[in-house]
Write a protein that binds this DNA or RNA. Structure first.
Length: 463
DNA sequence: TTCCATGATTCTGT
DNA sequence: ACAGAATCATGGAA
């Protein structure tokens, strides 16, 4: 609009001063010699110019303006004035300038677009936020990938950002279109009274679009920032430690202590544990990694815990064996899983001492006595071993073997037994070899034996 | 506030 | 790829 003002100013300056330009005016030569005639024409041109200037300030919809525009267009001086304006415009070179301007794609804008697309903010709605959330979860290494609370929180916030972004974008586009239409109408209207080529209108539209796209870029930039902040918060959150539930820890501990000779769960076992504990496989791996190293570092500290879980598992084992024996007498030994449905609530004990006592009583048949002669224990252990190792290999097999592992531990840990069994490597309290490594697996690392099906006895059936 | 337990991460070795 | 080891960072009890 400055250009228009400049034109008007120039035009007014040239004509009203009474000094025509050298470029050959097409204005009709003055008639007569008296000053009043010249003054009259000056007044006439001045009026037209005034109308032109004021008309641009008016709204196009105003009926009054229409009338005035009509009057202006039909004015007898209009063609002459139009020529003058053309000439002046040609002189100032406005029609040429910037005609061949072209804008190369802004790399920054492209980056922003790509990022918004990748984050699921831009682009199609379907799978947008969810895909990005999944990507973020995957980027977190799966450690907290299944944390549904944080996951949904992230998704919800991303959706919110997406909504705001699209609303604002729509608003800007609408405003841009409205403004463009308005300007085009204005210019078209003005093109009747002053020289405006379609190319210039197009150029003006381009300028408007550029202005609006710069606003859009700011919007995209802000959106990107918001997404980055959200994402960093989400990814930081994965480091936030949340203790596993008591139940989960119990399940993991039971597995650990019942497989103390080889506490390396297989992939299937990890998956099973993960499912039972409602955590991820990675978390199971982490837990076992930490547990192994910490147990090894300070066996003494874990003694009580080991006793507790071992006793618990041993009781389970004893029940399992008893059930197996009974089952073998009443049912076909090849019947899968029969007789091994155990419920944890049967073994609700409140202290390690109680469990040890129970265990001892179980072995001795006495009540509250720890003075069990060593050979008895050994016999019992041997019988247990023979039970699991030979008689019930096919059916009880792997699980009982792991339970037996636990029994070994408990027996070795229980006061009064250590001396008698100490010399036997089989009764090593912590199943660690001289090199500080775990002994070779004597028990299957998996809680899922190839011979067993779902519902069979595990060391960690208590969920 | 301090201290310990514990889940997660990172680095290194195999 | 997996395990061990060290370390970080947080939760929770004292």
């Amino acid at each position: 609009m400055d250009e228009q003002a400049r034109i008007m100013q120039t035009l007014g300056g040239v004509n009203l001063s009474g000094h025509p330009g050298q470029g050959g005016m097409t204005l009709p030569p003055p008639h007569g010699h008296d000053g009043t005639d010249v003054d009259g024409r000056k007044q006439d041109i001045g009026d037209i110019l005034h109308q032109i200037m004021t008309i641009t300030d008016q709204s196009l919809d105003e009926a009054q303006a229409k009338n005035r525009k009509h009057g202006l267009n039909c004015h007898r001086m209009k063609p002459a004035l139009f020529s003058v304006l053309c000439e002046i415009k040609e002189k100032t070179g406005l029609s040429i300038r910037g005609a061949q301007e072209e804008e190369p794609p802004d790399p920054q804008l492209m980056r922003l677009d790509n990022m918004l697309l990748a984050e699921g903010v831009a682009g199609p709605e379907k799978g947008g936020g969810a895909a990005a959330a999944a990507a973020a979860a995957a980027a977190s290494g799966g450690a907290a990938g299944d944390n549904s609370i944080e996951h949904s929180d992230y998704r919800a916030k991303l959706t919110q950002i997406r909504q705001i972004y699209h609303t604002e974008l729509e608003k800007y586009e609408q405003a841009c279109n409205e403004f463009t239409t308005h300007v085009m109408n204005l210019l078209r209207e003005q093109s009747r009274t002053r020289p405006i080529s379609p190319k210039e209108i197009e150029r003006m539209v381009n300028i408007i679009h550029r202005k609006f796209s710069s606003i859009q870029m700011q919007l995209k930039q802000s959106t990107c920032e918001a997404v980055m902040i959200l994402r960093s918060r989400f990814l930081d959150a994965r480091r936030k430690r949340r203790n596993f539930s008591k139940q989960a820890t119990e399940i993991l501990n039971e597995y650990f202590y019942s497989h103390l000779s080889n506490p390396y769960p297989s992939e299937e076992a990890k998956e099973e544990l993960a499912k039972k504990c409602s955590i991820t496989v990675s978390q199971v791996s982490n837990w076992f990694g930490n547990k192994r190293i910490r147990y090894k570092k300070n066996i003494g500290k874990f003694q009580e815990e080991a006793n507790l879980y071992a006793a618990k598992t041993a009781v389970n084992a004893a029940h399992a064996v008893a059930a197996a024996v009974q089952n073998s007498q009443t049912n076909s030994p090849t019947t899968p899983n029969s007789g091994f449905q155990m419920k944890d609530e049967e073994f609700q004990l409140d202290s390690a001492e109680n469990k040890n006592t129970l265990l001892t009583n179980m072995f001795t048949g006495s009540s509250g006595s720890y003075s069990l002669p060593t050979p008895n224990t050994g016999d019992l252990f041997m019988s247990m071993q023979s039970l699991s190792g030979d008689s019930y290999q096919g059916q009880v097999g792997a699980n009982v073997q792991s339970q037996v592992d636990t029994l070994r531990h408990v027996i070795s840990q229980t006061a009064g037994y250590s001396d008698g069994l100490g010399g036997n490597a089989m009764y090593s309290p912590h199943s660690l070899n001289a090199n500080g490594g775990w002994q070779d697996a004597t028990t299957p690392s998996s809680i899922i034996s190839p011979t067993e099906g779902p519902g069979s006895v595990h060391s960690d059936t208590s969920i």
